[in-house]
Design a binder for these strands. Structure first.
Lengths: 217, 217
DNA sequence: GTCTATAGATTGATAGAC
DNA sequence: GTCTATCAATCTATAGAC
């Protein structure tokens, strides 16, 4: 299988290429997350997706370009989640929805979160421009919204910047430090624990800025 | 200078060895923090402390043993900070003191925090035993204390475990994601910003569990 | 104890058959 | 497009002079 279009899926050349690229990107994301950029080897990524090492270089010319594509894909997912912070909603709805979505991301995209954390910890050599443009603009608009809530007396007066960092830190911790959490928990969090953790985080942060959190249901 | 005891400091052989070891460990901590274990090279560490590469192997037989010593030193500092969570104090005093101390650590030991985060993100290959013994015991005693506060009606009923994670996440974020914070802030946080961030974190977390936070002064 | 030179192993990347 | 074989560069670690 591979050359003709008689397989299970349509399989035009473009579709096959996209499929193989995704296979490699998924494997690369996991290996980069677990070993960092410097610790990851092309061989390890090749093994993780069952392809010869040379094929990786056929689809992505070199290690750095492959890494860059992995990081860019993660940033796209992050941007989607960022959209769940609706600027027109009331603070309790907007924040609860955003925190819940970020917790869900930590659960479903653990590797992506780790790659992002690694990248930032190492000085963001690849995504510095994203930090300075897209992330900065997004952050500033949300800070303005939060400041509006404060001016309207909807939440307590706190520096909106530190609140944003608190939300990012708390939610992403469940992905980046998953190994520590699972060690202390004797295994992965189950469905009920994820719900409880999410509700607890929402509760602490909302009450922390003077909002009575509604029900989590 | 170096062989005789006529230098500025006493300089017995043992003292000189300790001094050189600390020089190497400091450089190693910074390089490991910025590049990860796999990305760091012995040459980069040697350059960072102005010593020939061979000397590193004289003091620490190989890269992994050097890394292990770096991580162990960080764990010692973490344990000291852990002691500031006094089990006999009232919740507001105990938590405020612990959070403040953790924020101070993030400011003064950024590299150590990053190395720890890296180690945990990569599955804690070196410090897994510490997680399972020392950290676990410490966490369980504090969870019991927090549960006691809940039973006595001093704080709102929340799962103490998620509260601990929230404290760790929020405070360590200021070290691990310092680069992102500084990018969004147009430079390092100044004294006033550190104080404000610390006070905000204390305020959100204490109010979040139903305590009226006292003054930060 | 300190340093230079180098061995030995690993890795990113490519050439070339199929 | 896929795979095997291999080159060139880099890195850990050590040998051996001082």
């Amino acid at each position: 299988m591979g050359q003709t279009e008689g397989g299970e899926k349509p399989g035009t050349r473009a579709e096959m290429r996209e499929e193989t690229e995704r296979l490699i990107l998924d494997a690369a994301e996991e290996v980069f997350a677990e070993s960092g950029f410097g610790g990851a080897t092309m061989q390890a990524i090749a093994d993780a997706c069952g392809l010869p090492k040379a094929n990786l270089h056929y689809y992505f010319s070199n290690k750095e370009k492959l890494y860059r594509r992995v990081v860019e894909r993660i940033f796209t997912i992050w941007l989607e989640a960022a959209g769940s912070f609706e600027t027109s909603a009331t603070p309790d709805v907007a924040l609860r929805r955003y925190i819940t979505r970020k917790m869900q991301l930590s659960r479903e995209h653990r590797f992506g979160s780790k790659v992002w954390a690694n990248e930032v910890m190492h000085g963001a050599p690849i995504i510095q421009d994203y930090l300075e443009t897209t992330l900065r603009r997004w952050t500033e608009t949300r800070i303005a919204v939060i400041q509006g809530w404060i001016d309207a007396g909807h939440i307590r007066p706190i520096n909106p910047r530190w609140l944003m960092y608190t939300i990012w830190a708390t939610t992403q911790h469940y992905a980046d430090f998953a190994h520590q959490i699972e060690t202390l928990n004797d295994g992965p969090l189950d469905e009920a624990q994820w719900q409880d953790a999410t509700e607890t985080v929402c509760g602490i942060l909302l009450r922390g800025i003077g909002i009575d959190p509604g029900t989590g249901a």
